[in-house]
Design a binder for these strands. Structure first.
Lengths: 222, 222
DNA sequence: GCTGCGTCGGTGAGTTTGTCACAAAGCCGC
DNA sequence: GCGGCTTTGTGACAAACTCACCGACGCAGC
């Protein structure tokens, strides 16, 4: 029986791989730590590795020419940053970037080793395609929301999604607006309206949800 | 030297594969024809095959709960419908559907054979990931446009993108609106405005571009 | 031809969202 | 307390979406 490096425990999708492949993986994978705020990939610095997140989160966002931004999705611990692998190979001119939102521990698999693993292991292929699938459905969801959903509902949903256990968010209205790909004023007004309804308290840099149930009710209106 | 089936000429990305893999591909690949309007995959009918388009086009669009729609991208001849392969494996509850926009000739590669090809051929893997890359950048572009671009510019761009050599489009305003994920009235008004400016002529079911250069100038404003 | 019917396009009114400009309030270092 | 910076608030306006409805067109059946 093999002794697995500890990071492997975070990736149940890799549990079924053969002993041979497991050894290859251990030999090729580098563990790294990234500071909060590190730009992992982006315009001008294409990704050269498949990234497996052991701890922390990575935020992937899109930049527009006009300087506006939108958060596309987040990669959490136990997940991989697969979309970049596709973009490893071809078009480097995509305008998305990945940023370490917290301090991050990650495992890096270089491009060539990634390819070898894809060749050798059915389980690894399944792992990769499943990750792709999740990201792509996330993107479809983003498109559906910005194209069709009302802003008040989107704000309510995002409040709940970003809320910690203490029901409090620590971010500026500007950053919240980027989450939704909209303008700061729109978010400010909407939050003010929620405050008038007694659903939350606003102060500089924090949003405290006082009535999450009402917010949830709005978020779940079809 | 092998004699390749004629469909292989459409896929330069597969030119470099080895003889062994080439034989496998020929043995496993089924050619089919699909009638215009056929739903290739969609809610309730997940894709079971990788699709390589030999001729015709496939339109992939998203349906919202409220009944609104948006065109995500098109697959043209010489391209493959790879995003569905990811979704082969996992989440079946995505609300996108693929429709044969014209009569279509396609080559089908069943899931298991797809997996075997991924295992055997570096070139096949490169082909698949390049296709992924293109689709994903397409999706990023869609997000950028619906989130940040003005409607008049998007209408102008779409007119040029859908224009045939005869500078004429044959579709209803409703269908044009679905291309952009917006409402029919918005498109109708915008087209009417373009007609007032003398850029095009409208009649029931057709749009005739009389001044494509002006339209292009608008489409290219940053 | 004419009639009826379904589809397609046009339009006004009201709401929501985005843009712009600027003011007010909070925070920090001095 | 005082400047300087960041964050939030707000009014006015423009753009986009929604809703309701009507008229115009095209076609099948008479």
């Amino acid at each position: 029986m093999l002794t697995l490096p500890s990071w492997r425990a975070s990736f149940p999708g890799l549990a079924g791989i053969s002993e041979q492949v497991s050894r290859l993986l251990d030999r090729k994978a580098h563990t790294t730590k990234l500071r909060q705020g590190t730009v992992i990939f982006g315009p001008g610095s294409p990704a050269e590795n498949l990234l497996l997140l052991v701890s922390g989160t990575v935020r992937v966002q899109q930049l527009s020419e006009a300087g506006r931004e939108i958060v596309l999705y987040r990669v959490h611990s136990g997940e991989s940053c697969v979309l970049t692998t596709a973009c490893l190979l071809a078009f480097e001119d995509y305008s998305a970037e990945g940023i370490a939102e917290t301090d991050v521990e990650a495992v890096l698999i270089p491009r060539d080793d990634f390819d070898e693993l894809m060749s050798l292991s059915k389980e690894f292929r399944a792992f990769v395609f499943e990750a792709y699938s999740k990201r792509i459905t996330d993107l479809f969801l983003v498109i559906e929301e910005i194209a069709f959903k009302r802003m008040d509902i989107r704000v309510a949903q995002k409040l709940l999604a970003l809320m910690g256990d203490d029901k409090t968010l620590h971010l500026t209205h500007q950053k919240f607006a980027i989450e939704l790909g909209t303008a700061r004023e729109v978010v400010s007004r909407q939050l003010k309206e929620f405050e008038r309804r007694g659903w939350l308290n606003l102060s500089r840099g924090t949003i405290e949800l006082t009535d999450p149930n009402s917010i949830r009710r709005l978020a779940e209106t079809p």
